[in-house]
Amino acid sequence: MALSQNEIQRIAHLARIEIDEAMLPQLQQQLDSIFGMIDVLSKVNTDGVSPMAHTQPLVLPLRDDKVTEPDRRDHYQQGAPAVQDGLYLVPKVIE
């Protein structure tokens, strides 16, 4: 399977990663070789095989509906790029 450069840009948009146009040919070549390796899976017979998401039979753990964590907002926001009045700042979304 070959990914077109347009498709790569579409995925990059979904992944929110800016891709430099100049890097596209090399990236295309690398992704092609990786998907070439992956495509061997299409030949494996998996009829009747159920997909395996986890290795152990997991049961979603439940807990009592109680407050267990203290308010550590200030502490947690110390590493944020931009905060004001306890809120994370982002570029204006609505004009």
């Binding site: 998996t46 095989v49 159920s50 998401a53």
Partner: peptide, 18 residues
């Protein structure tokens, strides 16, 4: 992504079980 999930992700999860 849409249209490729079954062919890649689900397929890989099945081969994982094998």
């Amino acid at each position: 992504s849409h249209g490729y999930y079954d062919a890649y992700y689900l397929k890989a999860q099945k081969v994982r079980r094998l």
